[in-house]
C-alpha cells in the first residue's frame, strides 16, 4: 500500500528536525569550546602552538565534512570505543566546527587593536586576564556575525548525518520519500524545514554585520 505524504508524514520529518537542532546545538557547543582553544593556540606566542593550530585548521577546512564524519565513524572503534552513530556524528561535527570557529575567532582576536593588549599588560594584567577581560569580549563582538553565519553552515552540515543512518530531518525525508513515492513534495518540505531554521539565523547574522559596519 502506498501512503500519501500527508500530515503524519510531515510530523515524522519535523520529529527528525528535532534531532537536527539538537545535533547542531551539541556540535556548536562542543566545537565552540574546542574552537576557542584552537583560536588561542593560533594566536599564541609559541611557534609550535601556532603551527599546530594552522595545520589543524587546514585539515578541517581542506577536507570534505563527509570524509571527516566517515573518518571519525570508522576511527572510533580503533580507539576502543563502541561504534555509535550519534557519538561519531557529534564528535565529527564538533571537530569540524572547531576548525572553522577557530579560524573565525582567530580573525576576531587579531582584529582587536594591539594597543588593547598592551594597555591591559601595562595595567599589570596577566595573559589570562588580558584575554578574558579585554581581548575576547571585543574579539567575540567582531566575529559574532561570522559565527552566526557558520552556525547556519553547521545546521546544514548536520544533514550529512543522514548518510551515516542517523534519522534527523534529511534521513526522515528519505524514509518518507521511500514509502510515499513523492520525493518532490517530501524534499520540498524537508528543504522548507531547514529554511525555517536557517533563515532567521542568516537574517540575524546579516543584521549583526550591518550593525558592526555602522559602528566601524
Amino acid at each position: 500500500m502506498i501512503r500519501e505524504f500527508g500530515f503524519p508524514e510531515l510530523l515524522f520529518v519535523l520529529e527528525g528536525a528535532r534531532w537536527t537542532i539538537l545535533l547542531s546545538a551539541l556540535a556548536f557547543v562542543c566545537g565552540g569550546a574546542l574552537g576557542l582553544a584552537v583560536a588561542l593556540a593560533r594566536t599564541a606566542r609559541s611557534r609550535a602552538l601556532r603551527w599546530g593550530a594552522t595545520v589543524y585548521i587546514q585539515i578541517f577546512q581542506g577536507t570534505p565534512l563527509l570524509i571527516q564524519l566517515f573518518f571519525v565513524f570508522f576511527g572510533l572503534p580503533l580507539l576502543g570505543l563502541q561504534l555509535n552513530v550519534w557519538l561519531a556524528v557529534t564528535i565529527g561535527l564538533a571537530l569540524h566546527a572547531s576548525g572553522y570557529l577557530g579560524e573565525i575567532w582567530r580573525g576576531g582576536i587579531q582584529a582587536v587593536p594591539a594597543g588593547q593588549v598592551e594597555a591591559a599588560r601595562a595595567l599589570g594584567l596577566g595573559y589570562r586576564s588580558a584575554m578574558i577581560d579585554v581581548v575576547l569580549p571585543q574579539a567575540l563582538r567582531i566575529s559574532l556575525p561570522a559565527t552566526v553565519g557558520f552556525l547556519v553552515n553547521l545546521v546544514k552540515g548536520t544533514a550529512l548525518a543522514a548518510l551515516l543512518g542517523l534519522t534527523e530531518a534529511t534521513r526522515a525525508g528519505q524514509l518518507m520519500s521511500n514509502i510515499t513515492f513523492e520525493p518532490l513534495r517530501v524534499y520540498s518540505a524537508v528543504g522548507l524545514v531547514y529554511f525555517a531554521i536557517c533563515l532567521p539565523l542568516t537574517l540575524w547574522s546579516a543584521r549583526l554585520e550591518r550593525r558592526l559596519l555602522r559602528r566601524g
Binding site: V152, K156, G157, T158, A159, L160, A162, L163, T170, G173, Q174, S177, P183, Y187, V190, G191, Y194, F195, C198, L199, T202
Partner: peptide, 9 residues
C-alpha cells in the same frame, strides 16, 4: 538556507 544534500535529492 537549505542543505546541499537536500538540494541534490
Amino acid at each position: 538556507n537549505t542543505p546541499f544534500l537536500v538540494q541534490i535529492f
